[in-house]
Design a protein around this nucleic acid. Sequence first.
DNA 1: TGCCCGATTAACT
DNA 2: GTTAATCGGGCAA
Length: 198
Amino acid sequence: MAPMAKRLTRSFFGRSVHDVAPELVGATLLFNGVGGRIVEVEAYHQTDPAAHSFRGPTERNAIMFGPPGYAYVYRSYGIHWCLNFVCEPKGSASAVLIRALEPTQGLRAMRRRRGMADERLFCSGPGRLCQALGITHKQNGFALDEPPFELFARTDTVEVVAGPRIGLTKAADKPWRYGQKGSRFLSKPFTASAKLEV
DNA sequence: TGCCCGATTAACT
DNA sequence: GTTAATCGGGCAA
């Protein structure tokens, strides 16, 4: 993490999920001091058939219908945990799925939790990064601008690439997956994709 | 109530 | 390439 990085607050998240998602690439996410640089995210809007909020509120997705700047954590395939940042004004029920980090802080803790030595496999996937950081359903509804979470804006220029989201059957054609071009820590590589200049 | 599928991962063949 | 692990939601009956 670069020094003098600006902390991300509520107002950062209270905008269109399609604006917030690409801006999160290059930001730093820490949980209890463990984490790294966000290199891959996906955007989910309430009007998107692939979003958990598409069919309305349930017990699981209730946090998505609340105010922006909070963590929505859900169980995936009955096994893993996945971390999202709630965006847009309250009730819009839109969120950004955090899919991969480049580990920078707390490598020892991540190695222990993941049970493997290869740093590229610590946080390269939504389930993997939650395991590495120790995030579970207990963090559902936590504020992102308060401990144990810390979020810092990127301080450098990043080449962001966009492509189809991973593992979907609905709205699989929408290019709402964003990643840092050339990163070794992506959950999957991007093919020749549109490049956004940021 | 029962059945199928899913914003996944690791360990197989 | 395939498959098991395992649970909440959606929908049919």
